[in-house]
Amino acid sequence: MGAGHGGPLGAGYVAGSGPVHRLEPHVKLVAVLGFAVVVVATPVHAGWAWAAYAGYLALVLGAAAVAGVGPRRLVRGLAVEVPFVLFALLLPVVARGPRVDVGGVSLSVSGLTAAGGLLAKATLSVLAATVLAATTEPRALLRGLERLRLPALLVQILGFTIRYADVVAGELQRMRVARESRGFRGRHLGALRVLGPAAGSLFIRSYERGERVHLAMLSRGYTGRVPAGPAADVPVGDWLAALALPLGAGAVLASGLLLG
């Protein structure tokens, strides 16, 4: 599991031993969440908003550099944004208010600002979350969420999902290899007659695996709780290092609010 495993879950993780990799996962989660909150709280229509975005960008790129997360990994992380880029492109066309002519198309000024702001905020947050995902193993993130008091049952469910997602996805991959080595090419709707049952048997296999795992756990004394070891103390220095990102962003926001 985890680093170098090659499964879809570990794909986001970039193995390393830098200062960011060594931070406790819950500290990093708090830092990234704090950064996102500051970014979201920035008023879109303020005149200094773009200066603030530039400041945030410098901060998050600095964090990525310290963490040893390369530009290619960051760009790959941004791919998730694409559907909402489309939604943001719609805004200047339909928004109300004064309009400007851009290349023969009448666009709303407030819509343009809003769309730009949305894209900037989404990009900044995705960059920060990409640094988190690239420096923290899935299991460590689970431990971090547990320390942040996610309900115990939800932590257990999440644990099983993280443990078995690669197994289930591997089964899916073997089914695909088997299909395609028999000449299957899914090009049109008729492929559903093959892909539907494939997904159906994937569900049945997953569910039955869950039943077997449960029985195996019962035979090892499972009572509905998974014991966890004592949580390690976090030195103040680690907190300060991690919180430098949200605190720096907060300083940018505060100076914008005060000076702008």
């Binding site: 049952l153 469910i157 999902t161 996805a169």
Partner: peptide, 21 residues
């Protein structure tokens, strides 16, 4: 709950990766 919901979530996660033409 934990093992079955966990495995079902893993199935949903994997099923979202299947591209249906």
């Amino acid at each position: 709950t934990a093992p079955l919901a966990g495995l079902t979530a893993a199935f949903v996660f994997a099923a979202q990766m299947i591209n249906f033409p």
